[in-house]
């Protein structure tokens, strides 16, 4: 029996970590006598931002982390961020194989699976959002909390006033009015209790979560074919299962928020299309610039876009 070690980027109680731990349980069940995953903990065991390096250097064999945490080493992760597809489609169309090869080439890690995909981000505001004559969102006077993932969109396109704050400070910042709007995934607002202060959700949602499992390549290559098969098959099944589980969770969260008075405001028509296009294109522009600075032979910019963005899916 082979054993590999694993850590996860987020605290154990977070829903995304629970999803990963259920994947581990499935592997340990299917892999009895062949392959076992030993979870060493979360950010308390290896710092959140140090985990990608730790798996690269073989300190730990497997890490569950957003690609954005190693975006400096692998700009192609933005293909996932700006994707309007889930792991289910991109597994079928070969997109994830491409991402795997890029990971092997750039970082010496195996990209095992894209979990918890299909979750996107909304803008959430305290006060009722207003729109200009063309139906575009007006951001004048909005104090928007940002971070590295979405600032290109917020500042370059929306031209909003963005305030960088660590997640832990957002609760009191909302309470005091330091910020009155934030981006966040569709799921999780209730766990953070930010819904105490936020009253409006702006649709459509943009971006996608980019959480994935990466494995040290030497460890991976050293595993028996049977162990590899169990890991890969369980991961592919969990890609599908987690999309469905999180959709259910999203619907539950939205229902709970609706019941507590969250109002949904929607952008329409051309304004909606421009908003989505801007989120996507500011992110692609960033990816393109960084890819050109350090090109790989594995995949070009256009290949990636073709695999991770389907214009038909926007309608």
């Amino acid at each position: 029996e082979e054993t590999i070690t694993a850590v996860h980027a987020f605290p154990e109680t977070l829903i995304y970590t629970q999803s990963f731990l259920s994947f581990v349980d499935k592997v340990n069940e299917a892999g009895a006598g062949v392959i076992q995953i030993e979870v060493r903990g979360g950010p308390e065991a290896i710092g959140m931002m140090q985990q990608p390096d730790a798996v690269r250097d073989g300190i730990v064999d497997m890490v569950y982390t957003p690609g954005s945490f190693y975006g400096g080493a692998l700009p192609e992760k933005d293909a996932l961020v700006a994707s309007n597809l889930t792991a289910i489609e991109t597994r079928q169309n070969g997109g994830l194989d491409l991402i795997d090869r890029i990971h092997q080439e750039r970082m010496g890690v195996k990209y095992l699976g894209w979990f918890d995909s299909g979750v996107c981000y909304n803008l959430w505001t305290r006060d009722e959002p207003s729109f200009d004559a063309d139906g575009n969102l007006e951001v004048e006077g909005l104090r928007l909390r940002g971070n590295a993932v979405y600032n290109a969109f917020f500042t370059n396109y929306l031209q909003a006033q963005v305030i960088d704050l660590p997640t832990g400070e957002v609760y009191s910042a909302l309470q005091n009015g330091v910020v009155d709007a934030t981006g966040w995934t569709q799921i999780g607002l209730i766990d953070l209790k930010w819904n105490e202060f936020l009253n409006y959700r702006i649709e459509p949602c943009f971006f996608s979560t980019d959480l994935g499992v990466i494995v040290n390549l030497d460890t991976w290559n050293g595993l028996s074919d049977e162990a590899k098969g169990i890991l890969q098959n369980t991961a592919m099944q969990h890609e599908i299962d987690s999309v469905n589980a999180l959709r259910t969770k999203r619907d539950e969260d939205f229902a709970a928020l609706d019941a507590a008075g969250m109002t949904v405001v929607e952008l329409e028509g051309e304004a909606k299309a421009n908003y989505l296009a801007a989120a996507r294109e500011t992110t692609w522009a960033r990816m393109k610039e960084l890819m050109e600075a350090t090109p790989t032979a594995v995949a070009g910019y256009d290949d990636l876009i073709a695999k991770f963005y389907d214009p038909a899916a926007d309608n």
Partner: peptide, 23 residues
């Protein structure tokens, strides 16, 4: 616990991570 030399590098990696936070 972290496998020799690379563990020491990880220690230093942690160090700058712990010292570049606004808190």
């Amino acid at each position: 616990f972290m496998g020799g030399e690379r563990g020491v590098v990880a220690l230093l990696n942690n160090g700058w991570g712990a010292l570049t936070i606004f808190a």
